[in-house]
Nucleic acid binder design. Structure first.
Lengths: 171, 171, 171, 171
DNA sequence: GATGAATGAGCATTCATTCAT
DNA sequence: AATGAATGAATGCTCATTCAT
């Protein structure tokens, strides 16, 4: 791929991510193109249609996070610390796009499945080591963390995150 | 208003609420009408345009909840119990519509402001009576409860709600 | 169907037939709508897309002709005269549309099959009664007549038709 | 012109001819380029635009045929045999492209005029020598032969051609 | 000279809204 | 008052053509 094409693709992804978060699934493709400083044609050369664009972005976000979490999970850190790391990483991602994501597209479902698997494993480990309450299912913990992490404007150390984490912690 | 007109209005509101929750802000007006078993013309007779429909629904949801919460707040129940009641009432409302709501419309902002005022007051009271942690701002508590309460499929006694509430409780 | 809707549908079919013949499969839908004196939206209310419009028109043309030919075939006219009648009828139809027709659409293939069946039968009958040369296959006769009949500007008694018919006649 | 440029030009003409016959005037330029195994840029270096490409192809086809027919007409063969030769040559050409040709382009009209002149002359000669019926105009004979010759899949000795030729022959 | 990326005008289609029935 | 047909502006997407690599 030519250098300029790669750069444009990157511009599109960035602009689209922002646009989907700001304006939801309905943003006009032309608005995305304009925000990227490119013509619609260029957008469509890179992504055959809106669904493909959304899918790529979602995969990107989720895969990045899955990789980072898997990496942390491979260390000998306490599972609790790995979980904190997950929250810290997740909050940095434009996670809000996922609200409008077509999870029935297998190309999207796969990395999501991967991420969930890793995180659930970490949660179970934390329950085993005694740092996370074990009176709730790992899946419910995951859901709760998802809420925390997908808020627009979330930070890993804001009061809301702290309350939830302290609510999860085994006392 | 004739009886059948009132009934139709009700059908529209119900169908629209569902549709907005299922398919987001982009649902076609015609889809809403069809779901209500009516023609588009009828829909437009009741609501001048899409914004009016969305606004009405949002106001409905929020006002109902604000009224109920204000009522509970007027009793001598502990503020903690009033807060629990708020959560219980809120999860019953189709709160997810609010995601796609135009909060810049004053007709919508007003009841939302009213609801927030009541709930913030209850939270502050709970902190004063010593049942809610006072190391976080009432506004942050409100935000957290909103997350819990707006999830699609939320229940007041599911694990997720319990964790959050236990995280809020002063120990 | 409302009276005006029926009238509009008719206007569309007429305009589209003409447009497809004049400008081929590529005519802009908007041009068709304008030619019919209607908005594009109306066109799309009646036909979900360009293919549906083309299909309907083709079916119309072919079915009309198939019916007329079948009717003539049911009389005790000589098969030769039935064949002449077919040419006379066919030449009146806007047959040129068929050039750009999606024959893989079963809804279109069916009436075409029906027409072919009738005409082939008439041809075989004419060969049996000794009025059409039997040193060529009925299918080839059909093809030849199709060429004659689909010319833009064809008439049943122009020199071209006469030559072909005299070439077919058993001497 | 460099050898590879000449080769590419040839590839384009071949691919375009095929493409126009298969898919009509609407084929995308990019499809033609791909079919030729080249980039669009290369196509446009050889032909300034779609019209130029179509025109060139048409001229090619027609000129080739006009030359060959003129050559045969210059011999002392009977005019009937020259006419047969014309049919034999014509069916070998990708004549179907002509359906989508812009005959208002003088560069295209010229060779067509030339071809017609030659063929009309041969036809008139055949009528004079008594081998072609003279109860029809030469122009009508030409039209009829064009139909025969432009069919996709035409052969000079298929039943259809034979019928028409026998219909033309003076008995 | 070849390539394929970029561009934007153009066409297909949808949908909010109006209006005749 | 209800209906659904009509409208055309808005949006998705394509494709002829240009141009940087």
């Amino acid at each position: 791929m030519r250098a300029d094409a790669r750069r444009n693709r990157e511009l599109i992804v960035r602009a689209a991510t922002q646009a989907f978060m700001d304006a939801g699934q309905c943003v006009a493709m032309e608005d995305i193109a304009r925000a990227a400083g490119l013509g619609v044609g260029t957008l469509y050369r890179h992504f055959p249609d809106r669904a493909a664009l959304l899918a790529l972005i979602s995969c990107d976000v989720v895969s990045r996070l899955a990789a980072r979490t898997a990496e942390a999970a491979a260390t000998d850190l306490s599972r609790w610390d790995v979980l904190l790391g997950y929250v810290r990483d997740a909050v940095l991602e434009p996670f809000a796009v996922l609200k409008s994501v077509p999870t029935d597209d297998p190309a999207v479902a796969e990395p999501i499945g991967r991420l969930h698997a890793v995180v659930l494993d970490v949660i179970a480990g934390a329950q085993a080591e005694g740092t996370v309450r074990d009176d709730i299912e790992p899946l419910e913990v995951l859901e709760l963390l998802s809420l925390v992490v997908c808020r627009p404007g979330a930070r890993a150390d804001d009061a809301l995150a702290l309350v939830v984490l302290s609510g999860l912690r085994r006392t």
